[in-house]
């Protein structure tokens, strides 16, 4: 089975309510196995949320990077 692997980019900067976790859940819903999701967020809560989320859903956090103006998270979708 061949599947086109996508890169999904999500700009969640500035989202405090409902918050970046909503954008992650949305991207997850629209993703396929093999896709990577890159999220930019200003809400630092994303770091804990994304780790808990990956554990629960069985997906992989490739990196979490703290930059001066944002957090950049990259996730690989292994399970759907």
């Amino acid at each position: 089975m061949s599947m086109e692997e996508n890169k999904i980019f999500v700009d969640s900067r500035g989202s405090s309510c409902p918050g970046p976790i909503v954008d992650l859940a949305k991207a997850y819903r629209n993703s396929k196995v093999g896709d990577t999701i890159e999220i930019w967020a200003t809400d630092k809560g994303i770091k804990n949320d994304v780790t808990a989320w990956a554990q629960k859903t069985g997906n992989q956090v490739l990196s979490i990077e703290d930059q001066p103006d944002k957090v950049v998270v990259i996730i690989k979708i292994l399970k759907r």
Binding site: C17, P18, G19, I21, V22, G45, D49, A52
Partner: peptide, 12 residues
Amino acid sequence: TPYPRAYSAEPI
């Protein structure tokens, strides 16, 4: 809920 907690934004 699809989120890690009942309300998505943690403070509330």
